[in-house]
Write a protein that binds this DNA or RNA. Sequence first.
DNA 1: TTATCGTTATGACTTTTTGGCATAACGATA
DNA 2: TATCGTTATGCCAAAAAGTCATAACGATAA
Lengths: 118, 118
Amino acid sequence: MEIKSKLWIEVGGEPVFGRGRRFLLQAIDKYGSINQAAKEINISYRRAWSYIKAMEERLGIKLVERQAGGKNGGGANLTKDARKFLRQYELMEQGIKEIVDKRFKEIFGKDNQQISRF
Amino acid sequence: MEIKSKLWIEVGGEPVFGRGRRFLLQAIDKYGSINQAAKEINISYRRAWSYIKAMEERLGIKLVERQAGGKNGGGANLTKDARKFLRQYELMEQGIKEIVDKRFKEIFGKDNQQISRF
DNA sequence: TTATCGTTATGACTTTTTGGCATAACGATA
DNA sequence: TATCGTTATGCCAAAAAGTCATAACGATAA
């Protein structure tokens, strides 16, 4: 038995940014390629592309500068706005998981003894 | 732009308990009926029933004592184990949302000014 | 005894969401 | 002008979520 937690940002009731998309942007920053980034985090290129499109539309912000063709076949890089947004999100997320895990252990018992008690 | 947070418990990688199921158990406790409870929280009886079944299977614990037919057509009540589990979960969840909301405001700005800055 | 009533219990179907495949277009470079 | 690894998207498949219909139940009242 384990605890899971999730944080995400919505705009107009639609999800816009969460941990998965954070990973994606970070990986794009690392590789300079949506394709490579998608492989890194084990999602299809198609899915990564859809994520980016939805994020940009809903936020109304350009997040990823892309080029198809050219040197190395093209590539993608984060915009300044994307980096800023990412920093803010990382800051917000930081430590929350630890708080939740700690509380879970306190209440349900470090070794989940309670489950065998039932 | 708003922050959302979610907590849930998994067993063997499968979701077992979260806010929605908490509402469901609480409503069953209140009405003594799965049917009424489902109406209260705006899900179909079918869905409520599936939730309960999955929870009980995955936890290996009987959560809801049911009777089809009889006085008032039957009904459903929480077991002692369900009440205990519910108490623990409520305790764990309590305050987490507030922590997250507070942090969101601090970082992204109380009035989401940052979104207009982009 | 029997009809009634509001439950629980499920199968079957529909709709929505998610995921993945296939393929076109791109453009610097050799 | 052929190549190469990208980005870009339409289309279909699979999975998940939601809905509908109907059977079974059993205390109670007629």
